[in-house]
Nucleic acid binder design. Sequence first.
DNA 1: TGGTGACATGTCAAATATGACATAATACCG
DNA 2: CGGTATTATGTCATATTTGACATGTCACCA
Lengths: 102, 102
Amino acid sequence: MDKDKQARLARKGWKVGSAADFLGLSPEESAYVEMKLALSAALRKRRRQNQLTQADLARVIASSQSRVAKMEAGDPTVSIDLLVKSLLALGVSRKELARTIS
Amino acid sequence: MDKDKQARLARKGWKVGSAADFLGLSPEESAYVEMKLALSAALRKRRRQNQLTQADLARVIASSQSRVAKMEAGDPTVSIDLLVKSLLALGVSRKELARTIS
DNA sequence: TGGTGACATGTCAAATATGACATAATACCG
DNA sequence: CGGTATTATGTCATATTTGACATGTCACCA
């Protein structure tokens, strides 16, 4: 599978429409990708609101600056679990999380 | 860390209150656990509504009956990613997912 | 120009999640 | 009671995710 490459290209590429509904993604695949992108965006927004650098956040969640960068970039190798844990660590509530997702 | 064991015990144990706020869980840890449990419950509910056995669902998502059972049991080794993918495969929308989480 | 801080990107060993399998339980029905 | 269907639980080899590290890019400023 070169879905990762696809995703990476797509992020770099012109971003034709708005979201990730490029080559042959089933509805649920694309819903999944969109959710992850929404979480990524929320993470960046929240981190900035909290006046933290990526390195700062990395310390808080016991991770690394590079992984935080990848989270915010929507890198295919980051799990929803990690995104959710990070958002919760930033003080986001379940309700806010839910709003982010939908 | 024996958090897994803790979680497993807790699921078996008397379930004192209602959710997973037993031994020394930080607010965000417990929010995370509660989210996973909510997704687990939603999965079981949806699967039954769709008249599928665990083996049926396993086929749909290209997994195994045992993993489906673990998903529904809130097993610590199952990721939110897998739960979300499974729910989406069952036809749950992002909005419904969001409602489940909050 | 160089220096510094913040972020991006690639790689890799270690950690964790996964599907598959075996094997219990449990329930229902003849 | 046996037989069948469904779900539960444990184990394990493989696959994916992870933190860490190196290194690059970019902006700002002295």
